[in-house]
Computed example of a mutant assay.
Amino acid sequence: MIEIENIVKTFRDATAVDHVTLTIEPHTICALVGTSGSGKTTLLRMINRLVQPTSGSIRVDGQDVMSVPAYALRRKMGYVIQGHGLFPHWTIAQNVGTVPGLLGWDRAKIDRRVDELLDLFQLDPATYRDRMPAQLSGGQRQRVGVARALAAEPNILLMDEPFGALDPVTRGRAQEELRAIQARFGTTIVLVTHDMDEAILLGHRIAVMDKGRLLQCAPPAEIIARPATDFVRELVGTTDRAFRLLSLSTIGDHIEQGEASGDPLDANMTLRGAYSELLWSGRKAAPVVRDGVRVGIVSLDGLGQLAAHP
């Protein structure tokens, strides 16, 4: 658990974080959202003491972070930044094994962990472990950056706009990978993003910040349906609210009966994804399968009704 209590951070005469109190539950993803200069990155960096708070306290599992040497604290947390931050003259294996090496793991254990993580991110160890970062695509480098952050099996992963530099297709895949990995390991993730769609997709809770203050912290459905302030309402977008609610449910939650032809859609696809797919393909309906078995259909009319009456 991460407990942030009445945190203030001032730089000269400016207040970057203004009396923020926030609790992040274990094994969840908390997305910090806001415009540039809202204080979200400063708040994130205070968790691992890259920035020192002016006042207030931050506790991790009940222990004040200021009572732990900064280097020891950081080795217990993964940290991922936009643009991956890999060491360019080290191999992929050396990059991923950085923190385990600092912690004194033996070579055989480090090698096993490197291969395990490369496999997890669908990067064949025999092919990629001895390559240099410059030999990888942008998406591959970002995946290696996340693998490096997870190498020492941290309970907490801090992520500062990790997917901002990726193209939309690669970014979508990276987001899905992160969801799957978080569900598998139960890692507590604090994610900074300016993209509300990303926050809704990934966050169990979304914390909206503006001018250093925390305006609202709630599950995505509550943020969308009941924004606490005009700023939160504007960030969500009045015209997109209904369709963002569709991104919180899967086709399998709203199976319809009827006939439809063409390529089937998987029951785990979001309703918003199904709506986009039907519009793109020009179909009024599509069959739905779960584990390869046809279970019903999804239709534009049905999705339209859900959007109109969320």
Rank of each mutant, 00 (worst) to 15 (best):
E5C: 02
K9H: 06
T10H: 11
V17T: 04
V20W: 00
T23Q: 05
T28E: 02
C30M: 14
L32C: 14
G37C: 04
L43H: 13
L43V: 10
L44I: 09
R45T: 14
R45D: 13
R49F: 06
L50A: 06
Q52H: 12
T54P: 07
G56T: 12
I58Y: 10
V60N: 03
V60D: 09
D61H: 13
D61W: 11
D64S: 14
S67W: 06
R74P: 03
G78S: 12
I81T: 13
I81P: 15
G83P: 01
H89A: 10
H89P: 06
I92N: 02
Q94R: 15
V96P: 04
T98G: 00
P100Q: 03
G104A: 07
G104T: 01
G104Y: 03
W105D: 04
A108T: 15
R112C: 09
V114L: 05
V114E: 11
E116I: 10
L117K: 04
L118H: 06
L123F: 03
Y128N: 11
R129F: 12
R129E: 00
M132I: 15
P133Q: 13
P133Y: 08
L136G: 05
S137C: 09
S137I: 14
R141W: 04
R141I: 12
Q142F: 07
V144A: 02
A149H: 02
L150E: 01
A152H: 10
A152N: 14
P154E: 04
N155A: 15
I156Y: 02
L157N: 01
L157T: 06
L158I: 07
F163E: 04
T170I: 13
T170R: 02
E176N: 12
E177L: 13
R184N: 03
R184S: 09
R184V: 00
F185Y: 15
T188D: 08
I189T: 12
I189C: 07
V190D: 08
L191A: 12
L191N: 12
V192L: 02
T193I: 14
D195W: 01
D195I: 09
D197Y: 05
I200S: 06
L202Y: 05
H204T: 14
I206K: 12
A207E: 08
A207Q: 12
M209S: 06
G212N: 05
C217T: 11
A218D: 08
A218K: 05
A218P: 08
I223Q: 06
I224Y: 01
I224P: 01
I224L: 06
A225P: 00
R226H: 15
R226K: 14
D230K: 00
D230I: 10
V232M: 07
E234F: 06
V236L: 03
G237Y: 08
T238K: 12
T239L: 07
A242M: 04
F243C: 00
F243P: 00
R244A: 12
R244G: 01
L245D: 00
L246P: 10
L246D: 08
S247F: 11
T250Y: 02
H254V: 14
I255G: 00
I255H: 03
A260Y: 04
S261Q: 08
L265H: 06
D266A: 09
D266F: 03
A267P: 09
M269W: 04
L271D: 08
L271H: 04
L271P: 05
R272A: 13
R272P: 00
A274R: 11
E277S: 14
S281K: 15
R283N: 13
K284I: 07
P287T: 00
V289A: 03
V298D: 01
V298N: 02
S299Y: 07
L303Y: 04
L306D: 01
H309G: 10
